[in-house]
């Protein structure tokens, strides 16, 4: 099987996000970068499939040269090849990223294209749908279970209050959700091997962004703990306030 996994570099989820002076982006100093956590489920699933059926896993990521460190972290899980699509910045409009990724994916002859259900930085959750639509391939997002037999796939997809069972023909695009698998730890051997894998750099023309980010702000701070009391004695007052002040019960 020839499998592509699109990954994105995101800040560690414990990062204290600070807004930059331009008021439109975050300060990148001091951030530790990781492979977007959902993308690890995508990589793991791809690796398990090639371990079973043979084939290769190619990691694809769009961004500046700085993301190559994160690409190597993805490779260290056991992937075989890597492509970086060069962009000076990761676009703010996911549609722009999708078009560039689709261009590269189109010529790769992949049986399956995996990605995370959403990136934990911008939380768009658009990429699997955009790529599937752009390539006119079957696409399933929010996948928690996947079975591949021959050129047919079946996926369990999370919805509010349940799951959908969906079948499709390969090639297809899969958006990986938690519970799809348990991503493996990177072994020392994997980390050493990843250093030797060349990262192919491709150029892609980026289209103009149509989703414009004009301003970033911190959410208003809660005037925390209107009542902050100790022990069961506090309960009657809190319940009264929930009814009379907050009007929620």
């Amino acid at each position: 099987m020839n499998i592509a996994v699109c990954i994105k570099q995101t800040p560690d989820t414990t990062t204290r996000v600070k807004i930059a002076d331009n008021g439109k982006s975050i300060m990148e100093e001091g951030i530790s970068w990781i492979v977007n956590p959902y993308d690890e489920y995508a990589i793991e699933e791809a690796l398990q499939l090639t371990e079973k059926h043979g084939g290769e896993v190619t990691i694809i990521s769009l961004g500046p040269a700085g993301i190559e460190k994160t690409i190597r972290e993805a490779l260290a899980m056991g992937a075989h090849k890597a492509i970086r699509i060069h962009a000076d910045n990761i676009p703010a409009d996911p549609a722009v990223t999708a078009k560039a990724l689709a261009e590269t994916l189109k010529s790769g002859g992949y049986d399956l294209i995996f990605m995370g259900r959403q990136a934990v930085d911008d939380d768009h959750g658009q990429m699997p749908a955009l790529i599937s639509q752009a390539l006119n391939l079957p696409g399933v997002s929010m996948v928690v279970k996947l079975t591949i037999e021959g050129n047919k796939g079946t996926a369990l997809r999370e919805i509010e209050g349940g799951h959908e069972k969906v079948s499709f023909n390969l090639p297809a695009v899969i958006g990986a959700n938690r519970h799809l698998n348990v991503p493996r730890y990177r072994s020392l051997k994997g980390i050493m091997q990843a250093k030797k894998i060349p990262i192919e750099v491709k150029q892609a023309p980026l289209t103009a962004e149509k989703l414009l980010l004009e301003k970033m702000e911190y959410p208003p701070a809660k005037q925390s703990g209107k009542i902050f009391a100790t022990g069961v004695e506090a309960v009657p007052e809190v319940v009264r306030l929930l009814r009379e002040e907050a009007k929620v019960i």
């Binding site: 925390s224 902050f228 069961v232 506090a234 309960v235 319940v239 907050a246 019960i249």
Partner: peptide, 27 residues
Amino acid sequence: IFKAADYGIVGDIAQVLPAMIEEVKKL
């Protein structure tokens, strides 16, 4: 969690929950 809360109760859940149930029942 108290930094995010509008109302905070410092206490053992084993006591606070039954007390809340009683209060809500009264209400």
